[in-house]
Amino acid sequence: MGGQPAGDIDFDQHNFALWEKRVDALLVLTSGKGYFTVDGLRRVLEDMGEEAFETMTYYERWVQSVNQNMLEAGAYSLEELSTKMAEVTARGETYGDCAGGGE
């Protein structure tokens, strides 16, 4: 996107949420263990198309990319993921409710 027209810089800063830090940690750890490279991360981000950059937040794109790379690396199956996501979602209403099982 370098050189493309764009609006003003927004200087607001949000505090990184715990789930965002965890996505970051999962990327650092899984790529550090050789499951994929930063190029693999980029490939999935590029494949999302420009719209994803308008509609999703930074770590929303990242979690999708890390997940896609881990699926491709065979770390777990799509079925295991969907079963686990359904189980997580059924735990409650909020991130705080649902995130407890991993800690």
């Binding site: 949420a17 715990l18 789930w19 965002e20 965890r22 996505v23 999962l26 750890l29 899984t30 263990k33 499951y35 999703m56 770590y59 929303e60 979690v63 999708q64 890390v66 997940n67 881990m70 770390a75 777990y76 295991e80 993921l81 686990k84 996501m85 189980e87 997580v88 979602t89 409650g92 209403e93 909020t94 991130y95 705080g96 409710d97 649902c98 995130a99 099982g101 991993g102």
Partner: peptide
């Protein structure tokens, strides 16, 4: 982030993290 309704992407983070722990990867 803890008291808004869980988003699909947050659910994906939790699920991925727990699966990776269960599989002994992390």
């Amino acid at each position: 982030d803890q008291d808004h309704p869980l988003t699909k992407w947050q659910a994906m983070e939790i699920a991925m993290r727990e699966l990776l722990v269960e599989k002994g990867i992390l």
